[in-house]
């Protein structure tokens, strides 16, 4: 059975010119796998991720024909039910850890807080928090446990963020550009942690990114979004056989170390893609 089923998801924001749909009828199902959602800025990829967690920022609103997480209909959840689900069974990692961690609270304390909300004792929470920091390959967990967010480097902060999201062992992790703020070498390390967690814990992962090449090298399946719609869904391995001109264009316009195409092919957006 699939972990998450989404049918006809729509996210709408009111503007002065009337309501504007930023996500327009997205459908997909997710098992315990790595699903990539790729698109450029404004494609609605981030709003899709937020809508899945019921985090569409006001005054926007989300609607769907079906939004089911492990047998639970997410559309009719009360605020209380959401709180019980979020963090515990589904979590989200944001782009910049600096904005997602409380700046005046030590990292370890924040981790413990999450655990204690979910009903762990003090000693148990401390042990689990340290274990979690170790699991995201932080070499000196004791030091990081006492550190404040500003004392951490970008890569370290992002790992703490992932640890934070994983302490409660969620079934689904939504990662919105989790590595874009990081250096390439650290990026790969963070991905390796996520990869391990998916394969070892059987977690479902939705990886939202603008980087088609990175996503295709990491995920099992890729959804390509354009102007609020999924224009193509394909297995990551088959990326070379992408049919949609947008996907092809995105792949082609990247400069390559070996390629010497001058000028680089540019994307000629066609109005029909957005329809």
């Amino acid at each position: 059975m699939s972990l998450l089923a989404v049918e006809n998801l729509r996210v709408t924001f009111p503007t002065r010119q009337g309501p504007s749909e930023v996500v327009r009828g997205v459908c997909f199902t997710l098992g315990r796998e790595r699903l990539g959602i790729v698109g450029e800025s404004g494609s609605g990829k981030s709003q899709t991720g937020r809508a899945l967690l019921g985090l569409t920022p006001a005054p926007g609103w989300a609607s769907a024909d079906r939004l089911e997480f492990d047998g639970t209909d997410l559309r009719s959840l009360s605020a209380r039910d959401w709180r019980r689900l979020r963090g515990k069974r589904m979590s989200m990692v944001m782009q910049d850890p600096k904005f997602s961690l409380n700046p005046v609270m030590a990292v370890g304390k924040q981790l413990m807080e999450v655990l204690r909300i979910h009903g762990a004792g003090r000693a148990e929470a401390r042990r689990a928090a340290l274990e979690m920091l170790e699991a995201v390959q932080i070499r000196d967990p004791e030091r990081v446990f006492r550190a404040y967010p500003h004392e951490l480097s970008g890569g370290m902060g992002q790992r703490v963020m992932i640890a934070m999201m994983l302490v409660s062992a969620p079934d689904l992790l939504i990662a919105d550009e989790p590595t874009s703020a990081l250096d390439v070498t650290i990026q790969i390390e963070v991905l390796r942690i996520l990869d391990k967690l998916v394969s070892e814990r059987g977690m479902g992962l939705i990886f939202i990114s603008h980087d088609l090449r990175l996503v295709s090298s990491f995920c099992d399946r890729v959804l390509v979004m354009y102007a609020g719609r999924v224009v193509e869904e394909l297995r990551a391995a088959d990326l070379g056989q992408a049919r949609h001109p947008y996907t092809q264009g995105l792949l082609n316009c990247l400069p390559q170390i070996d390629g010497d195409r001058r000028p680089l092919p540019v994307l000629n957006r066609e109005a029909s893609w957005a329809e």
Partner: peptide, 14 residues
């Protein structure tokens, strides 16, 4: 964005 990057790189190159 990647597609815009290509345009700007082409511009600089030209």
């Amino acid at each position: 964005d990647a597609s815009i990057q290509a345009e700007v790189l082409n511009l600089l190159d030209g």
